[in-house]
Design a protein around this nucleic acid. Structure first.
Lengths: 327, 327
DNA sequence: CAGGCCTATCGAACCGGTTCGAAAGGAGCA
DNA sequence: TGCTCCTTTCGAACCGGTTCGATAGGCCTG
């Protein structure tokens, strides 16, 4: 494999000139630069990434930390998020790597290695809990990171939706469909975004003078099926679920309880997973722009890598309702 | 951050001795080694990965190439495969990175970069097509790779199931349940593993003197639903699907056509996705040990990285039927 | 025409490890 | 005592880039 010294010899210039030409420093004379590039092309020269890493101090990679034993690689939402991360990183010639960890201790141990052996330039965290020791550890070392969701301390970098508005807009959509007895099968109360969405949902309910209840739960399809039935018995005519799998489960239990969707009950999911297209009726869903979140997360993180002064920034990504037939 | 030279100074030895101690070369005297390690611990020293990479020529990472715009990160099967890759790689202090590519041209371009800029030590490919230009490109450069599935030319490294046996065992399971009119909603005929499974399926059918048909198709749930109905009309009493999503779709269409499962029709899926547990009746499925495949793939690939003589090896991973209620 | 400045290029040091060959020191042996 | 051999340690080169400070040469100005 050709090295930069081979190129220098062939092009009759010094090694430093080759490096300058390669990185398009304005200083090198255009003819010289062309000559050097031509030699590179002839020898199919490519700069070694590890050599670059060593001298620049960059690993040219970002690292996704998946704390729950691989959840990121499972859900439809995170799949699109990861694609966004990837596309954004690759555009800047960075690689995306990932680690799956099973508990806080393992996460902390692994993260220390990641940082101190400089395997990566920045870490992507998924919805960290409110007092995450992991997050403290990273922040204490002033290492670049970005969180998907809310940064508990309000420090650092994050990408997110405006979750209050998400809840508000979803409720308003149901109300606009003529519904007046709403229920929100939400996520867990411990999750900040779930509370934010509930807040927005209830704002709309109050503002428009309709009835509405929020049911926090563990997020499983089973819980959704159960809560949907219960809401149905209480005369609910507009149901919002915290995810599409939950919405699908709710749909089934509503249909089997004899309800009609959307005529009797409007039903709405969240995240706009592909599976929503395949049920009957097709599911209306709040699209949270997972891909776009991934794109922004990597972009923001890499801005931080290049510019350490970027200490605090929260980027919100727009949401939009994908209307199908269920609401 | 402490470097190896800091350690050397503090421990009153030379840099090379520190390196030897760190890598546990037998040559260094135990007391010296202890003294060096002690200093390392005091300073919380960690060797820089990029420096190591540069001098050793290794990137300490393997790369998963996902050719179909992210399919690997979507299906339940590949999710477990990826976990296996990850666990096996991390155990050896390697990182797993991935790239998503959308077509052959992009795949080739990106792979050249991966190899010639030495971003990675080995590539994992998913079920390459029979005449994959990409595969030729990698093999031509003698770069380490492993394929999940069959290596079309029979060269190189691969991990796979014994697909003939998979088809055979599935059919035999249905036959053992007293079924005599079988149908196999298979994958596409272009896929070698689908043909292998069909072969095994038909062997069992012949051997036991029952009726059995193979229906190649595009693998979508819709196709499965349609083919299941058709089979049902032809008196099929034992149905095998090529995936669990297909099996679930078949289940629904069978039930809505008035068939009973498993009393009237035994139904079996493949891959043992989590979703099989949540349908009614719970799905019997052929478990292909996706996690184990991932584990073996990374292990094999890294053996090859360390030992270039390992040119040809195919590792088969056992399958097993997970019996629930549908068959 | 001397002096100063600007541009293009260069040599050398550096990033932080690994590894090769040499050398110092001690033990064993004739 | 002198020789060889073995063990342990060391210095230096190397991996392949980037970057700093120096320098040579050309042009402008007074």
């Amino acid at each position: 494999m050709a090295t930069i010294r081979d190129i220098a010899r062939r092009a009759q210039v010094s090694v430093s000139t080759v490096s300058l030409a390669l990185n398009d420093d304005g200083r090198v004379r255009p003819e010289t630069r062309q000559r050097v590039l031509e030699v590179m092309r002839r020898l199919d020269y490519r700069p070694s990434r590890s050599a670059r890493s060593l001298s620049s101090g960059l690993a040219y990679s970002i690292h996704l930390l998946d704390p729950l034993g691989g959840q990121a690689l499972t859900s439809g939402f995170l799949t699109r998020f990861v694609r966004g991360l990837h596309d954004s990183a690759r555009e800047r010639s960075y690689t995306v790597a990932f680690s799956i960890v099973n508990d806080e201790r393992e996460a902390a141990e692994h993260t220390k290695t990641l940082i101190s052996e400089r395997w990566t330039d920045g870490i992507v965290l998924l919805n960290p809990s409110d007092n995450s020791a992991l997050l403290d550890l990273i922040a204490a070392r002033a290492f670049p990171y970005v969180v998907l969701g809310r940064e508990p301390e309000g420090r650092g970098l994050s990408v997110d939706n405006d979750n209050h508005q998400v809840g508000y807009d979803a409720a308003r959509h149901l109300i606009a469909a003529g519904r007046s007895n709403l229920a929100f099968v939400n996520g867990a109360h411990a999750q900040t975004f779930a509370r934010d969405r509930a807040g927005g949902f209830l704002s709309a309910v109050n503002e428009y003078g309709v009835t509405g209840e929020v049911h926090y739960n563990d997020g499983t399809p089973e819980a959704a099926a159960e809560l949907a039935l219960q809401a149905h018995r209480n005369g609910c005519d507009g149901l919002l679920a915290a995810s599409d799998p939950q919405a699908v489960a709710a749909l089934r239990s509503l249909l089997s309880a004899g309800a009609s969707v959307p005529d009797g009950v409007s039903l709405m999911g969240m995240n706009n997973d592909a599976l929503g297209e395949y049920v009957d009726p097709p599911l209306t869903s709040m699209d949270l722009s997972a891909y776009r979140l991934g794109l922004e997360a990597a972009a923001l993180l890499l801005e931080r890598v290049e510019n350490p002064d970027l200490q605090n920034e929260r980027r919100l990504v727009p949401h939009a309702i994908t209307v199908r037939e269920s609401a």
